[in-house]
Design a protein around this nucleic acid. Structure first.
Lengths: 107, 107
DNA sequence: TCCTTATATCGTAATTTTACGATATAACAA
DNA sequence: TTGTTATATCGTAAAATTACGATATAAGGA
């Protein structure tokens, strides 16, 4: 019944995630979180040549895309991948474009 | 401003694809090509409110990301998804972030 | 040949993104 | 309270993206 609206929302959410991942700095943050499971913000800042405010801005984009979660721990924040968001993204990409490109690699 | 150089080649290619897909116009072009198998450029132009030159620019981005192919047919060009590129993207996303968020939503 | 059609590229505004320093906030210690 | 630490947000330049109209190119047809 409510399929149309949710489809629209699905595409919006997917586009937002893809756009967030399309930036190389944010992409590297995602890989760092995948490797380390969790990171404090200052660790992420130290791993880049960027200003703290810039990294914080990128983290906000990733948060709003549903790709990472930040948990406040005292004065600091501990970030990790958002398992639900990442799995949802992988499922979407997997089921995307079903009419093509699903067979074996032809030369 | 940005440090794309530090990314590995595979990651660069993946980032380029994700960036290309992060634009809603290009995302819709991809979906149109998935639905119709092939499209002439003018059909894609007609499906949007944008100028022909703008659509041509978006197609160039998709081409350079390896997501679509354009084949010249007389004075026109016939576009289709690039099966190799799309499958590569799906495989990359599938194998990405292997330490988390993989498999079915188990308890 | 010239003319039409379809597309790509050029030049350039308008918009968006990115990055920075400065400042605000929030938790905790002395 | 004051001071420190860690992070977020604000204000604003610089850079990149997006979009347009104009023009170039390339294939056929008259």
């Amino acid at each position: 019944m409510q399929k149309e609206k949710s489809l629209e929302t699905t595409e919006l959410r997917l586009a937002k995630m893809l756009k967030a991942l399309g930036n190389p700095v944010r992409f590297e943050i995602m890989e760092m979180l995948a490797n380390r499971q969790t990171c404090m913000t200052y660790e992420i800042v130290q791993s880049t040549p960027l200003a703290q405010s810039t990294v914080s801005q990128h983290l906000k984009v990733l948060r709003e895309a549903g790709l990472v979660r930040g948990e406040v721990e005292g004065p600091a924040t501990c970030y990790c991948l958002d398992p639900d968001g990442v799995r949802w993204l992988k499922d979407q990409i997997e089921g995307w474009l079903p009419d093509c490109c699903s067979g074996s690699p032809d030369a």
